[in-house]
Write a protein that binds this DNA or RNA. Structure first.
Length: 428
RNA sequence: GUGGAUGUAGCUCAAUGGCAGAGCACUUGACUGUGGAUCAAGGUGUUGCGGGUUCGACCCCCGUCAUCCACCCCA
């Protein structure tokens, strides 16, 4: 045991049970994405470091990306996020694509940071974007997707919601307080941290940052004004669209949401657990209208969001939304090997069933029957088949229903139909 | 990068300076053609690693590694 090489910090082993959860989540993501007409895509996991330079958050690239030289000395980056890749892919084929385009993806990402609850160094992320349309209805569509996703996986609006804001709106409000443009960028980050600090700490932070007492007071009233959105025509459109889609229960205006990444330009939003100990955002996104031009394409408006697999899994676990009985043996039928005489009969029965679409686990050794049945039971098989000397002589097979605790012996020619009818019965 | 907690059997944990234990799990048998239940018998171990203090260390001290939690940042 002590000689086993440790897995890398911040990575996860997906044992069958965890793999099943991951695939379940992937399936839900696919279902919702496709329900809104989005196409799946993916990019390389390795990218040139240049792709990320100055486009994402400074720290995300400089401190938190895995960067290493390849054999030619080029600096390679394990992708820390997908949006720059998406921007490049779109820019490369801009003339051939049909806009607005709706694309989604689910895959692995890497960020070098200290692992903690809901955060690891290797994680999976759902990315979904709509590119080539600047109307707020596009942002509203994405928020509707989030609400639909929450509903689909069993989260109610009292569990999780989407907080929505507009960077443009807040920027204009800050400008009205005569705060300089450079300072406003710094202020976004401080606003983003408000919920993590006590009011007194936060006030000290802001005064230290250089706000006057009156500017601080005005800022507080801006950030506490729950009807501030009425001043933003975009937000007005977003909320009326969300109402039309019937998902307004899941959405809330929150002027404190500004998001950390530098490329967001307008509407921003964040999925949050409502009653909770999870202060971490479930997902985050917003409009990034300049990114396409920044990577060398024609200017194209875009909006989208990303959701990591870890926080959502924690929340699903908390609310008991994770499916039960997944990750079990995919084969409902287990066939025992009684002795050497009947071995080939057992094998050929197994193959017959498989060729007819029934999954079968085959015992490979002639162990004691009790041992084989115990093994079948542990694998979670529903049916065990026995071909002993009696069955061998009479061309029959014994079908034991493990969960029901009953068994019958039938002619081998009736095996397929009998198994099928047993599997059709619901488990009690 | 900063701060805090933890590390004992396969798992969950006890043992506060005096012979390392319990439950679960596991193996075998009761049951030579029948799993789950019950009963009986059985291995569970470099107490993360290295050093120190002590007659004696799982326990105290120093170092180190790992894990978890929080901060930073963010999905």
């Amino acid at each position: 045991m002590k000689n086993i090489i440790q897995p890398l910090k911040g990575t996860r082993d997906f044992y069958p049970q965890q793999m099943a959860v991951r695939n379940w989540l992937y399936g839900k993501i696919r279902k919702i994405s496709e329900a809104f007409g989005y196409q799946e895509y993916d990019g390389p996991f390795l990218e040139s470091i240049n792709l990320y330079a100055a486009k994402s958050g400074e720290e995300l690239v400089k401190e938190q990306s895995y960067v290493f030289p390849d054999h030619s000395g080029d600096l390679i980056t394990l992708r820390p996020e997908l949006t720059p890749t998406l921007a490049r892919m779109v820019a490369q084929k801009q003339a051939q694509l049909t806009f607005p385009l709706r694309w989604w993806s689910f895959g692995p990402f890497w960020r070098y940071e200290r692992p903690q609850k809901g955060r690891s160094r290797e994680f999976f992320q759902w990315n979904i974007d709509i590119i080539g349309i600047d109307s707020p209805q596009a942002d509203a569509e994405l928020i509707t997707i989030i609400a639909s996703f929450f509903k689909e996986i069993g989260l109610l609006s009292q569990h999780a919601r989407v907080m929505v804001n507009s960077r443009k709106l807040i920027d204009a409000e800050l400008a009205a307080l005569e705060i300089s443009p450079e300072k406003r960028i710094g202020l976004f980050k401080i606003i983003d941290r408000r919920s993590k600090l006590s009011p007194a700490e936060w006030e000290a932070y802001l005064l230290d940052f250089g706000l006057s007492a009156s500017q601080y007071k005005s800022l507080i009233s801006i950030l506490n004004n729950t009807s501030l959105w009425e001043k933003s025509p975009e937000l007005v459109t977003v909320f009326s669209t969300l109402k039309a889609f019937g998902v307004e229960d899941y959405v809330q205006f929150d002027p404190n949401i500004v998001r950390g990444l530098d490329y967001y330009t307008g509407i921003v939003f964040e999925g949050q657990e409502i009653q909770g100990e999870f202060r971490r955002a479930i997902l985050g996104g917003g409009r990034y209208d300049n990114l396409l031009a920044d990577v060398g394409g024609q200017p194209l408006p875009a909006t989208g969001f990303a959701m990591g697999d870890m926080v959502i899994s924690l929340i699903l676990e908390k609310y008991g939304c994770l499916p039960v009985n997944i990750g079990e043996n995919p084969a409902p039928v287990f066939i025992t090997i009684f002795d050497e005489n009947s071995r080939s009969t057992s094998y050929s029965l197994a193959m017959q069933l498989r060729q007819n679409g029934i999954n079968v686990t085959c015992n490979l050794e002639t162990e004691k029957l009790s041992k084989q049945l115990k093994y079948a039971d542990r694998l979670g098989a529903r049916i065990a088949l026995i071909v002993g000397p009696d069955e061998q002589n009479n061309h029959t097979v014994t079908i034991k229903e493990l969960k029901a605790g009953i068994q019958q012996t039938i002619n081998q020619s009736e095996l397929l139909s009998t198994i099928r009818s047993i599997l059709e019965k619901p488990l009690t």
